[in-house]
Structure formats: C-alpha cells, structure tokens
Write a protein that binds this DNA or RNA. Sequence first.
DNA 1: CGATATCTTGAGGAATCTCAATACTAGTGG
DNA 2: CCACTAGTATTGAGATTCCTCAAGATATCG
Lengths: 246, 246
Amino acid sequence: MSPYDESSSCGAFLKTDGQAPCDACPVRSLTLCSSLERPEMDALSGIMQTRDIKAGETVFDEGEAANALYNITSGAVKLYKLLPDGRRQITGFLFAGDFLGLAVGDHYAYSAEAISKVTLCRFPRIQLDRLMDQYPKLQRRLFSIASNELAAAQDQMLLLGRKTAREKICSFLGVLSRSNLRRNLTPEIIHLPMSRADIADYLGLTTETVSRSFTQLKTSGLIRLMDGHRVKLEDIEALAHDAESG
Amino acid sequence: MSPYDESSSCGAFLKTDGQAPCDACPVRSLTLCSSLERPEMDALSGIMQTRDIKAGETVFDEGEAANALYNITSGAVKLYKLLPDGRRQITGFLFAGDFLGLAVGDHYAYSAEAISKVTLCRFPRIQLDRLMDQYPKLQRRLFSIASNELAAAQDQMLLLGRKTAREKICSFLGVLSRSNLRRNLTPEIIHLPMSRADIADYLGLTTETVSRSFTQLKTSGLIRLMDGHRVKLEDIEALAHDAESG
DNA sequence: CGATATCTTGAGGAATCTCAATACTAGTGG
DNA sequence: CCACTAGTATTGAGATTCCTCAAGATATCG
C-alpha cells in the first residue's frame, strides 16, 4: 500500500468526498488553511493527502527531493540538520497546526522526524505551486508562514548565540507556554514530548546541562517537574525575566 | 529635507522619469527586481525612493513601525537583536543586492545599521502590499527571498549551536567567499567591512576569540591577513573542510 | 515485571570568556 | 607630511561556564 492515503480526511475525521473533511479540522485556524475562502479551501483539499507516521519515523530527510509540503494535524515533529561527525542542531519543534516542508531548491535542507505518532496533511509541491498561481491568497498565506518562521529563527539565533543555559531553558519554556495559549491550552502546564537530548540539540547544550538546568529551576521554585515530560510553571513572570537576564 | 529622495535613481545613476534608473542598476540581478517583467519593474520603480545612509547610522530600529522594505544598491548593513543587558546577536550581514525589512507584524523585530556608507532603494510597505496583490510574480519573488533567508537562518542555527570557534570562522569565510562568486568577485579575497566585535556578535563569540581564531588560521597557513579588513584565503578546500569538522 | 533506554547527578577537564596590557590603524590637526 | 589621539585589534593570564566521562536512578515498553 502507498504511504499516502488520498481519500482519508484531515486527521481522524469523517471520510467524505474530499472537501468536507477540512471543515471539521480541529487545527484549521492554525494551519496553511487559516483565513482562506471557500474556493481556495476546496482546491487545497482537492490536492491533499493524509499521512500517518509512527513515533521515531522520518517524514523526509535532508537532501531528499522536496516533493511535498505538510501540515501537522496531530502529534509532534522535530526538524534538524546534521554535521558530518554526527553533531545535530534541531531547528524547530512542530505541533498540531504547524507547517513544514519549505525548501529553497529541489531538495530539503533539513530532516523532519516524528517525535510522537503524527498525522499529516500532505500537499504535493507541483500541484501546490499551480494553486499558488491561481490563488494569490494562498501564496500570501505561504509568504506569511515563511516570514513568521524567519522571525522565530532570528529569535533562536539570539538564544543560541548569546544566552546562558538557564536563559535558554527559560526561553524555551516561555515559547511553549505561549504556544499553549494559541492552542487554548493552559499556559502553566507544558508538555515536552521530546527527549532531553532533543531539547539539548535544540538549545545548543548537552543533555546533562539541560537536566541540571531543570533541576536548578525546580530548586529555585520556578517550575515543578510533574514527570519527565510534563512541567508545571510555578512562576511565569520570573521565568520570563530569567529568559532574558537570568 | 526629507531623508527620502523620491526622484533620484537606483544607486548613483541618471535621474530620469522614474523607470529607467532600475535598468541601469548594477545589482539588479541579485535584488527583489530580479526576474521581473517590464510591468512589475515599472510598478516597482514607480513606488521606489532612494535613501543614502552614512556608516554607523541606523536604517531602522527594532520595535519601530515597519513602514518600508529595502534593497541595498551599495555598501554593507548589519541586522541585529539586543537583550535588555546589551548583549547583541547579529542575525545577518547584507551587501549590494540584498534585501531587508521583512517584518511579521507592524513592527521590525530587529535593527538594521549601516556598516559602511550605504545606498538603498526604499519601497513603502503599503504600496508594495498593493503591488503584491496586483502582480503575483512580485509576491512570489518575496516568498522566494523569505525562503532563502529562512534556509540561511537554519544554517546559522547549526553554526551557533554546534560549531567550534574555528569552525565558525571557517564557515563565515566560506559563506563570504561564495557570496563573492555570485557577485563575480574573486572568491579568494574576502573583504570584511565589519569590526571584529561585529563578527563576534554574528558568530556567538567574543572579539578576542575571533582574533585568536584568525591568528590560528593564519599560523596554519589557511589564510593571510592582508590588513585588518581584508583576508586572502590560501586554501579554500581546507577551510571548507574545517568549517564542518575541524 | 524485567530489560533497556532515558534521565539525573557527580567529578574533572576544556573551550571560551573576562580582564588587562600592548600594538596597531585611521583619522585629525599642526 | 608627520605626530597625536581615539578607536580597534591582538596577545596574555586567569576565571568560568559548559562539556565529557562515568555511575546511579528512574521511566518506558514489551
């Protein structure tokens, strides 16, 4: 069987004639599809496929032909680049509603791997390119997504180049907390589906330093480690402060 | 007098009725204007202004209303973000042909400052937005620029998060060398108009470490410091190798 | 419930930073 | 045209953060 299921719906919803599913999409307001009109929506769902991926599996690899773009319907994905000796930089963690697959040339410049079980909406690039010519609004939406990612990347450069380990962790928790707000989740409880090694590779640290920083924040009473993958922010104000000068 | 000169040409060229100047633009193939057709070109030059900036002066500041986008006709610009305590991360160095001013909301998320005397083509945002609706090709061009910047930002994250001081310097020289090629300059002679402090804030290092790394590369025979701001690459192969594992 | 991976903690080391002194460069005015 | 000054770059010595290596604790999954 093909890895792509052309007929299934956006996420785990009703299978229909191919345009209703997106109406039921729980994360639509966050995705590529946000603020699109009926015709764009229908065109998009017309070329859309869905793809399910198990935790640890690859969505695509650096260097691979960039044949498609994706929207995450559920689950978490990490993007990363590798150096020849295996050192790794994670350039982003993506969650439900997030978009991935932008490429400059014909090939992806980074790898994408599922952190948890993931459901994706897949848009073949050639067809999406055609739609972009047809619907300027879609083109604009993609431009806006790219601009947002660029701004986030610049924040991350500041973090990587100039922040201390503690500040990095506080910034990371702050970003996730704010992302919870956008998703109508409580900003105090942070879910960390990724490993400490992933966090380390995202923040330019080692797992040991990540672990020590968490412990230190716990000791200072700013956070509580509910379990390894769930953190309660006890003092968001103080965390925000320590993210920039702590 | 207004800082903007609506009538002058793109760069230091003939003043005309407002559409010929771009025809003479020496860096057009590198800019926003590249691969645009006559009507787009004319529309762009119609809303274009030029702006001259002295070394050390500001193009715009972080937080300022994002009223315009710019293309550099000559000179060098640095983009940077600051932390409250003054720590600085330079997110990019821009040269003739490069584009700046992309913003997510209504405000710039970073500052832009001239490193040398700079000439800019200025495009008011509101008018450019209108043109984007009118000319999908222009929209597409901006999307492509944003995508390219994003890819560069991801490379820089890898550099900042995972490379050693020596690797950072070698990577930096490599990028500039390749940028010389695009501009039809010799790839062996690198001009560094920025200070060591700027380089340090770009690479997540201190001036002292930048200086020591240069000295070390000189001692290894990979480069020659012709003067403080001009470097000869003696062994591009070796530099490229050391940019990723050395 | 046990095996394995992940996480935490500890001790020592290394790369880079900080602080300080010296050398160089570029621009200024005599 | 040269000397002077202020900024910039280099070099040195010691401090510090974070990393490496190693062991023990905890969580996860079949």
